[in-house]
């Protein structure tokens, strides 16, 4: 498999009135060509910030990439000037935002909004751009696109708008598409349609997708690989099978236990008690320690290293340490 995007030890901070918030604290992951990588975690864990960092869309000030690399086609996006980044944004890497109701400009027609991206990146005439826009609208399943081109966003339903937003992201045939909670604002039935669309598009165009979500149901449907984030760090990565059937990190287990499942009988929903740590002053050890039922003294003091568990399966947890396994064996 070909690596298309590499994120290495990414650190992002925000300066606020209350002090500096370390929103992303050393995130690393790879994205392979043609796959869907899901980044999962509860709100505030830094998954959106990670996505926006790749696009160079962290508002600066107050936000800043303080350390780390984002490697794409031989260049480090984290170090690029905005001018050079602009050539990549929308053309090679594109992004879909959460709420289709607010992601489109209410005073411009759909056609204008679809075409301006193409015109920005490609030397192409207006009529050709329009042809391409129509093609994209057909691809994302919008009926009678010719008449729809001249309409404004408020004339579309929520699901249709999200299709438009997806068309916007695809219009320049990017290699990577980042989708930030693309189904959260939609009805469940529409959600399913949009997820189908994602799979369909990936088959047709071979685009790699980074899917940011807190919804494990969505992840189960479309993700090839999963990265679980907690308090600004990736705590576990693995294939969909790894994460759903052999979760290793107590947080991943907690997440899975807090979601209703039909495949398990008499499965009780167990919420994770407590709330994530304050990222104004992140703890030196494992951030999950206060909510972890297996917490050890070491977890408070030192952050665990990444440990390989399976072929694609990695986890950052002291429970993987030999000494912890010995201790647990003794206890039993």
């Amino acid at each position: 498999m070909v690596k298309i995007l590499e994120v290495k030890e990414l650190h992002v901070s925000f300066t606020t009135f209350g002090g500096e918030v370390h929103a992303v604290r050393g995130v690393s992951f790879d994205l392979y060509k043609g796959e869907t990588l899901a980044i999962v975690g509860e709100s505030g864990c830094g998954k959106s910030v990670t996505a926006k960092s790749i696009m160079g869309l962290i508002p600066n000030p107050p936000g800043k990439i303080t350390d780390g690399k984002i490697l794409f086609k031989g260049s480090n996006l984290a170090a690029l000037k905005d001018k050079d980044l602009r050539k990549i944004r929308g053309a090679d890497i594109s992004m879909i935002f959460q709420d289709p109701m607010t992601a489109l400009n209410p005073t411009l027609t759909i056609g204008t909004q679809l075409m301006e991206g193409i015109i920005q990146h490609q030397k192409i005439s207006r009529s050709e751009a329009q042809k391409k826009a129509l093609e994209m609208m057909r691809l994302v399943g919008i009926p009678s696109p010719e008449s729809r081109l001249k309409q404004y966003p408020h004339q579309f339903s929520g699901g249709m708008r999200q299709r438009i937003v997806i068309a916007l992201a695809l219009v320049c045939e990017p290699e990577v598409m980042i989708a930030d909670e693309p189904t959260t604002a939609l009805d469940v039935t529409i959600q399913a349609q949009i997820l189908d669309l994602f799979r369909d598009i990936q088959k047709k165009t071979g685009v790699s997708i980074i899917l940011i979500t807190h919804d494990l149901g969505v992840v189960a449907q479309v993700a090839d690989r999963i990265a679980v984030m907690y308090a600004g760090k990736v705590v576990e990565t693995g294939t969909r099978r790894d994460i759903f059937y052999k979760p290793q990190h107590p947080y991943t287990k907690g997440l899975l236990n807090s979601v209703p499942r039909l495949d398990l009988e008499n499965a009780e929903l167990i919420p994770i008690a407590g709330s994530p740590p304050d990222l104004f002053a992140p703890p030196p050890g494992c951030p999950f320690v206060a909510r972890c039922q297996y917490a050890m003294e070491v977890c408070d003091k030192v952050y665990p290293q990444k440990t390989k568990y399976g072929k694609e399966h990695h986890v950052n947890c002291w429970l993987q340490d030999e000494r912890a396994k010995q201790m647990l064996a003794l206890q039993r």
């Binding site: 696009m55 869309l57 602009r86 050539k87 990549i88 944004r89 929308g90 053309a91 594109s94 992004m95 935002f97 959460q98 709420d99 607010t102 992601a103 489109l104 400009n105 209410p106 909004q113 301006e116 991206g117 920005q120 990146h121 937003v165 916007l168 992201a169």
Partner: peptide, 12 residues
């Protein structure tokens, strides 16, 4: 959000 969308398109 639509300003973010416009930025994500790579507009100047």
């Amino acid at each position: 959000d639509y300003i973010l969308t416009a930025k994500a398109k790579g507009l100047t």
